[in-house]
Write a protein that binds this DNA or RNA. Structure first.
Lengths: 212, 212
DNA sequence: AGGTCAATTACACTTTCGTGGGATTTGGAA
DNA sequence: TTCCAAATCCCACGAAAGTGTAATTGACCT
């Protein structure tokens, strides 16, 4: 069975080139091309594609907004962003809008076909460099170890409980120490991390609470 | 120049097999193998590897904890998780701990070498299925958390400020409403999420305050 | 032996948070 | 229209969190 692909791309030559590539490849069928978001919104639901290639930089409504709307209407369709840049903001906004993959326009044709196949099969194709950005976004750990490492083991331990939302009284119970001690430790933790509340501390350390 | 690889893997046969694979491949050198986290922590800094393959399921301290510690000591080294499963929790914990890639043990040898090369060059190798899980975490619609979706737009907005650690008074200032209203919204949020504190609420919605 | 630091406890005090009511307005759904 | 959810505001009370200052113990380092 063929994978039905639709294209939303404002540059005419690229749009036609992609159409030819897809129609010329066995297992793929280009069943619609659109030059802008408005046209796509009106007509694309009639074509019921399996995969839609969406350019981010469209005149008028952006490709990200388009994806956000279409994913609501077509829950079973996969969306793959085609961008000329590896712009961080666009990557994350596209993923948040519901895009399933993110490829660079200048990719080799065979890479593009691979990506379509992959996204159709439930994968999340993206270049290695883009994956790196995504992973980096997940990991708030960059340079700020300095403050975190100033914490004593006991303080890290207490911070872990803090992260889990326990009250001072409960933490004191777990560690068999008085609430006053817990309070004092937390006071020291906040000072070392240069924050003034539990939530600030947790935002500062990001996902590091799994250290314990 | 060769890529210096270290291995942390408790299963002896797999550990040796990987070592042979790496040493037998041009451009790669296995400069250390370790059977558990404790051994790795003691000796690995002497070997200064470029890439470390870490099994998640180690006796004693888990591979994730190991990565969390080693990334602090060796900021220029890349870490790649080797797991036998595609366990969601492990994937995200590994990424949060600072892992750069995530591959399945049963991958073809050439895939493993590719992944080492990729992670060494700043990529984030992971299988298509794992990438899908990562991407899904970015996508609001994949979060079918029934409770979360009960929140009204206004409540989500306030929850976002709550996640950033602002006080009621500050939130009220941002939204041009009274503190009492903020308080009431939060009361409703806690009720819908079935929690009793700010930290509980944030833990409930996970690290996904980026939705706003 | 003296010094430093982590860990511990204590008390007093202020601020913020969480909970319990109750109230009004508005817009959309039944 | 009636009903309801959402958003807004108010009051009061107790619990929890955060701040400041002070003191004691034990371990480790010089």
């Amino acid at each position: 069975m063929q994978i039905k692909v639709a294209i939303v791309e404002d540059q005419r030559d690229l749009r036609e080139m992609l159409g030819i590539l897809i129609n010329g490849s066995p297992g793929f069928a280009c069943i619609g091309t659109f030059a802008d978001a408005e046209e796509a919104l009106l007509k694309i639901s009639d074509t019921s594609p399996d995969v839609v290639l969406v350019d981010i930089h469209l005149p008028g409504k952006s490709g990200i907004q388009l994806i956000a709307q279409l994913t609501l209407q077509m829950p079973n369709t996969k969306f793959m962003v085609c961008s000329s840049l590896e712009d961080d903001e666009n990557i994350f906004n596209a993923l948040k809008a519901g895009a399933n993959g993110y490829i660079i326009k200048s990719s080799a044709p065979v890479k593009i076909l691979d990506a379509i196949q992959d996204v159709y099969n439930g994968g999340a194709p993206m270049s290695s460099q883009i994956a790196r950005k995504v992973v980096a976004h997940f990991n708030p750990r960059s340079q700020d170890h300095a403050e975190f490492n100033k914490l004593s083991p006991r303080e890290k331990e207490i911070l872990a409980y803090l992260a889990k939302g326990y009250r001072y009284k409960e933490i004191a119970g777990f560690l068999f120490i008085s609430v006053e001690t817990v309070r004092k430790h937390i006071q020291n933790i906040y000072e070392k991390l240069q924050v003034g509340s539990r939530t600030d501390a947790l935002n500062k350390i990001g996902g590091k609470s799994i250290l314990f």
